[in-house]
Amino acid sequence: MIITDTHTHLYSEEFDQDRTEMIQRALDAGVSRFFIPAIDSSYTKAMYDLEANNPEHVFLMMGLHPTYVKENYIEELNHVKEALSNRKFYAIGEIGIDLYWDKTHLKEQQIVFREQIKLAKQYKLPIVIHCRDAFDEVFEILEEEKGPDLFGIFHCFTGTYEQALQAISYNMKLGIGGVVTFKNGKIDQFLSTIALKHIVLETDSPYLAPIPFRGKRNESSYLKNIVAKLAAVYEVSEEEIANVTTENSKVIFGI
């Protein structure tokens, strides 16, 4: 059984004390494919080092995270463009709009999101979308950019059934993680009506740990808890959840 974590920040400082052991725990749990989203240029070296130490298991994305869109966004975008021109990545991400923490740079976030979607189309790569308190703003841009060359993952999907269908209509898989195990998460109430072919698994570690680890540091081995929850939701075996979602990840990332 191969389980794929489509979104994990394994380079995070929160893993500095036990990164090797944490990755081994994930491998022991069957999680052997880790897709690594970018945040900004300050983390690029750590991402490259992570890949160099785990070349068979780690697959990198490149992008500028919306909460890191500041006055220097042009400089950061140039870093993304330069990196993309120099080596292979498997997605543009994580990108999008976040209005939860700060609405100050909404205009800049919209510019950066559009620009990175264009880069994804240029390099024929998927996008991995970060959306927090911004479904309308994200969907507005996806509506403008929609087409056969736009595809990817709606990371950490926490929206409504209607929003799930809208995301899927833009060739997006739904990234399902720890929230599906929360009592107030709500997505488990309609998820079984969404075909499994539209779902991929993620942890977003070190964030959003599933029950029974909620509130603690998340790690990729905990994906087993999400697999178990989805097996119950879909009334299928854990093996089927792992197999189908891994195949879905291969469709998106091409590996």
Rank of each mutant, 00 (worst) to 15 (best):
Tyr68Cys: 07
Gln166Ile: 14
Glu51Val: 02
Glu76Asp: 05
Ala231Ile: 09
Asn86Ala: 15
Glu56Asp: 15
Leu223Tyr: 02
His9Asn: 05
His155Gln: 07
Leu106Thr: 06
Met172Leu: 13
Ala83Trp: 00
His79Pro: 01
Ile117Ser: 09
Tyr161Leu: 14
His155Gly: 03
Val200Glu: 10
Glu75Gln: 09
Ile39Phe: 03
Gln109Phe: 02
Asp133Trp: 01
Asp204Cys: 02
Pro66Tyr: 03
His7Asp: 06
Asn78Tyr: 01
Pro206Thr: 01
Leu142Trp: 01
Gln109Ala: 02
Gly175Trp: 02
Leu223Glu: 12
Gly254Glu: 14
Ser205Gln: 08
Ala195Asn: 15
Leu10Glu: 06
Met1Phe: 10
Glu238Trp: 02
Val227His: 05
Gly93Ser: 01
Val69Tyr: 00
Leu60Lys: 09
Gln17His: 13
Ala228Met: 11
Lys197Ala: 14
Ile2Tyr: 13
Tyr90Leu: 04
Gln116Leu: 03
Arg132Pro: 13
Lys183Arg: 14
Thr8Pro: 11
Arg114Ser: 15
Glu82Phe: 00
Phe157Asp: 03
Val244Ser: 13
Phe182Ser: 11
Glu145Ile: 01
Leu50Glu: 09
Pro206Glu: 12
Asp28Glu: 12
Ser42Met: 10
Asn86Lys: 15
Phe113His: 08
Ala26Tyr: 02
Gly178Arg: 04
Val128Gly: 01
Pro126Ile: 02
His155Trp: 00
Lys186Val: 05
